[in-house]
Simulated scan of single mutants.
Amino acid sequence: MNGNPGGTIAEDILMICDCDGVLIDSEAIAEHIIADRLKALWPRSDVSDTLRPLLGMRTQPLLERVAAELSCPIDADAIASIDAAVRMGAVQAPMIEGVNDALGAIALRKACASNSNADYVYSALTRTGLIGHFGERVFTADKVPNPKPAPDVYLAAARNLGVAPKHCVVVEDSVTGTRAAVAAGMTVLGFAGAKHIPGDQVHKLLAAGASIVFERMAQLPSLVDSFIIQCTAQKRNVNTNRDFA
């Protein structure tokens, strides 16, 4: 697969990848750390079930949401401690299996749009070598007014790179991120192949607005090719309509 029928980069189509759970297999580490810390604070059995659907949010609002849903107390020091532990653990996470080859087979400009901070994302992408696919096209929640599930980080990527949202295809593993990309007016390919993904995630991603859900990165180039063909057909139809206007 070379990403489009002509084999050249389509400058007016953009592929945007989430980082954690799509490029870096760090969400499983984050879930384990957060669950262990919260279970130590609150001796109850429903922590993991409450936590898992919220993965993809930034750590502070995630912890506050879990605390609220379980009616359990959590203070600022505990939040800061857990956030630091998650950052430290995620720093050594490996890349998602097959993602480097998949990205290399797709001839589109690629951006990364993450709910994490810029320093972490650049560090993770540089450490794994994935930065070569993105360069400076990295957009993070600490650089926009509102994190996912708000669409801000995705809209920032499209705006800065001069691509209409409808011509952006997003790869997301979380409900939070999927909702953000859908709110931005983008097409979402849901990834359900990371280690942290629960068995019902396929249905949750589809319910959140993903167009399709896949489980192996080897499937990604052909899915992106289908999106490119669809975009090209839409543009051709628009131009044809203009000719007859």
Rank of each mutant, 00 (worst) to 15 (best):
Y122A: 11
G56M: 09
V224G: 03
A158R: 03
L63M: 13
I13W: 08
D142V: 03
L223F: 10
S211H: 08
R242N: 08
A111V: 06
Q219F: 09
P61G: 13
E215Y: 08
A113I: 12
L125G: 15
P221D: 10
L161M: 14
V170L: 07
A93L: 00
C17A: 12
A30S: 14
A85T: 06
G129C: 10
N239S: 12
A150C: 04
G162M: 13
F214E: 04
G56R: 00
I24Q: 07
V175H: 08
I9G: 01
A107T: 02
A118M: 11
A90T: 14
R52V: 11
T187R: 05
P94M: 10
A181C: 13
I33P: 00
T232Q: 10
I131W: 03
P43T: 14
R37K: 13
R242C: 06
A107R: 07
A157L: 05
V153N: 00
E136M: 13
A181K: 03
E97L: 05
I106V: 07
N239A: 15
V224N: 12
I13A: 01
G7F: 05
D18H: 03
A118H: 10
M1Y: 12
G177P: 04
S71M: 12
D20Y: 11
L205Y: 08
H196Q: 11
A111W: 01
N146T: 12
P198G: 06
E31V: 13
T128H: 04
I197F: 05
D25Q: 10
A180K: 12
K143S: 08
L55M: 14
D12H: 15
A113N: 04
P221K: 06
Q234N: 09
A210P: 07
L41E: 02
